[in-house]
Design a protein around this nucleic acid. Structure first.
Length: 244
DNA sequence: TCCAATGTTTCGCC
DNA sequence: GGGCGAAACATTGG
């Protein structure tokens, strides 16, 4: 579920509820739910994998993490929501997610230019951030939410395959032209992801992630855990060049 | 049945 | 204090 493009889809589903007043707020989230009662939802925003429900003096930050889910107007049976908002003409339910109440406006907390799916995305700035890194591996850089907010493990693997770059390449050693493509392709693939996810055909467009054979050269795909977070990397050992 | 997975934070240890 | 690994959270599908 929860890479950036999926969160943009969630945001779009929530947008019709902007302007509505919360009639009641329930759930087992460790926040003061009474703060929400009778308050008007002023806006719905997203930043990477964060979903923001904005009120006048604070906002609710929802992160679905690995297993989070939601339902709109159809509560799941036998499940206690982490957060449930009853509105006039609707009910928003979030399960198994991280919920925080943050004081103030989101603008003070978020660099909108880092959101890969966002209107304010700044590719040049992302490139600059990459240049400040010492010895980072590209597989880690593509999961760095301060640089590519919203990029996740699927996006990482598919982008690296498109660029024919080995996940354990050091960004320092990669030519500038490839780094530029990396930045561009991460946004571009994220939008492909978004459209495929919306059409429920994301999985069949995976070229390397969880695949057995490289679609370009038919070499067996290597699947191994890489980088600081030891996240799964699927790559073609023949097509994807290692820069080091 | 068991394991791993589209994620992140926190804690303990060196 | 930085860096690393493990644990914690907790659901679903293969």
């Amino acid at each position: 579920m929860p890479e950036g493009p999926s969160i943009v889809i969630l945001k779009e589903l929530l947008l019709p509820y902007a302007g509505k007043i919360v009639q009641s707020a329930e759930g087992n989230a460790a926040i003061d739910l009474s703060r929400l009662s009778r308050k008007k939802i002023l806006g719905i925003k997203s930043w990477g994998k964060h979903t923001l429900i904005c009120f006048s003096d604070f906002y609710i930050r929802i992160h679905l993490l690995m297993f989070g889910s939601y339902s709109i107007n159809e509560p799941k049976e036998n499940r206690v929501p982490r957060l449930s908002l009853r509105l006039k003409g609707g009910e928003l339910n979030f399960y198994t997610c991280q919920v925080k109440l943050v004081e103030g406006k989101p603008d003070k907390d978020y660099d909108w230019e880092a959101d890969v799916m966002g209107d304010a995305w700044n590719a040049a700035k992302a490139l600059e951030k990459i240049h400040t890194l010492d010895s980072a591996l590209v597989c880690d850089v593509l999961l760095d939410q301060q640089i590519f907010s919203g990029s996740g493990n699927i996006i990482k693997n598919e982008v690296l395959f498109r660029l024919a770059v080995h996940p354990e390449s050091q960004v320092q050693a990669m030519p500038q032209s490839i780094l530029k493509k990396l930045v561009k392709e991460t946004r571009s693939y994220s939008f492909d992801f978004y459209h495929w996810k919306k059409a429920n055909v994301l999985r069949k467009h995976w070229l390397i992630y969880k695949k057995a054979i490289c679609p370009r050269c038919h070499t067996p795909v290597t699947s191994t855990h890489t980088g600081k977070g030891k996240r799964l990397s699927c790559f073609c050992p023949d097509c994807q060049q290692l820069y080091h």
